[in-house]
Computed example of a mutant assay.
Amino acid sequence: MEEHSGHGLKRNLVLSILLNFTITLAEVIGGILSGSLALLGDSLHNFSDSMSLLASYFAIKIGERKANEKYTFGYKRAEILVAFINSSVLFGVSLFLVVEAYRRFKNPQPIDTGIMLPVALIGLIANLLSVLLLHSHAHGLNVRSAYLHLLSDTLSSVAVVLGGLLILFYGVNWVDPLVTVLIALYILREAYEVLRESIEVLMEASPELDLGAIKAEIESIPGVKNAHHFHAWRIGENGVHFECHVEVDDMPISEAQRIIDEVEKRLRKYGITHVTVQLEVNRCEGKEVICGKG
């Protein structure tokens, strides 16, 4: 059942990617021909969706590859690299859109709504189809993030359509750069969050863990005297690795193994997927949770 679900997810991702790349191309051409900066801005949002979906697809494919002697952690960070590059580019392009919108405010340009509106409506319909394709699969963080991008882009397409109607019926061309600024600001916010999180993963920043609670949890295990020198980091989107020193009395290896197994078992509830425990007897002078030395 899970295998069929995985095939269905990859198929729907591919269809959504094709839809969004098609929308992007259509909106770029439509934006240039109609003179609508808002349509061009929405095309960038659709492009970000396409890249997000593409990253999700490759993350699933790459995640199926096994670790090897060169990449002992596997290939989990491929999606993080894609996210970093994608968000960095979007950040720069969004700032460019804001500058262009300011110029349009100062020198309004005529908008051909006969081209703008049909293209915007096609984009809206295609976005809705993409949302429906991924709705039943939006439970994992990887796909869910791409799904939320599609939902936000659907709202962006609605804004472009409404802007086109206002221009058509009321001739208020300043609505076009206004919608552009709103879309650009939204993309900036989304790009910033993705950029920040991808940098944290690449810099091996600790995920959000209650280290005090983890320390108390480990020290409540019979035979454990102290737990210290914690290190926690993320390999990819979901893989959280954790290592620590655990002080015990001198004991047989079989008893030591029991403690290690119990630590691993208890830390699963904190979302930790891989645990390395270094047992020691009266070794470390400092018993801090975070070691001050490199």
Rank of each mutant, 00 (worst) to 15 (best):
L124G: 03
G114W: 01
L81W: 06
T72F: 15
I85L: 12
G140P: 00
F73M: 12
K76Y: 14
N142D: 09
H135M: 09
P118R: 02
G74L: 13
L124Y: 01
L81Q: 06
A83F: 07
L132R: 10
L155C: 07
F91K: 06
M116N: 05
L128H: 04
A101K: 02
G123D: 03
A83P: 00
V99P: 02
G114V: 00
Q109H: 11
V119C: 04
V89D: 14
Y71K: 14
F105S: 02
D153C: 11
N127M: 07
G123A: 09
V131A: 11
L141M: 11
R77Q: 15
V119S: 01
L148Y: 15
I125H: 01
S152H: 13
H135F: 11
S152Y: 12
V143P: 02
A146E: 05
N107C: 06
L129P: 01
A146V: 02
V93N: 05
Q109C: 10
L117R: 01
L90R: 08
R103S: 14
L90K: 08
V143E: 13
K106Q: 13
S88R: 08
A78W: 12
V131F: 08
E79Y: 05
G123R: 00
I115E: 02
P108Y: 01
K106C: 11
T113M: 06
N142H: 06
R103K: 13
I115Q: 01
A138V: 09
L95Q: 01
F91Q: 11
S145F: 10
I115L: 15
F73H: 13
P110H: 09
V98R: 02
S156E: 10
R103W: 06
I80M: 03
H137A: 05
D153W: 12
T72Q: 15
V143M: 08
L124K: 01
T154M: 14
T154F: 14
L133Q: 01
I80V: 14
L134V: 02
H135S: 10
G114Q: 05
V82F: 06
E100K: 15
G123N: 03
G123H: 05
G92H: 09
A138E: 09
E79D: 08
R144M: 11
L132Y: 12
A78H: 10
S152C: 12
L155A: 15
I125G: 00
V89C: 12
L128Q: 04
R103A: 14
L117M: 06
L155Y: 08
I122R: 01
V131C: 14
N127F: 07
V119D: 03
G74H: 10
R144Y: 07
S87V: 06
F73S: 13
R104V: 07
Y71C: 15
L129G: 04
Y102K: 03
V82I: 13
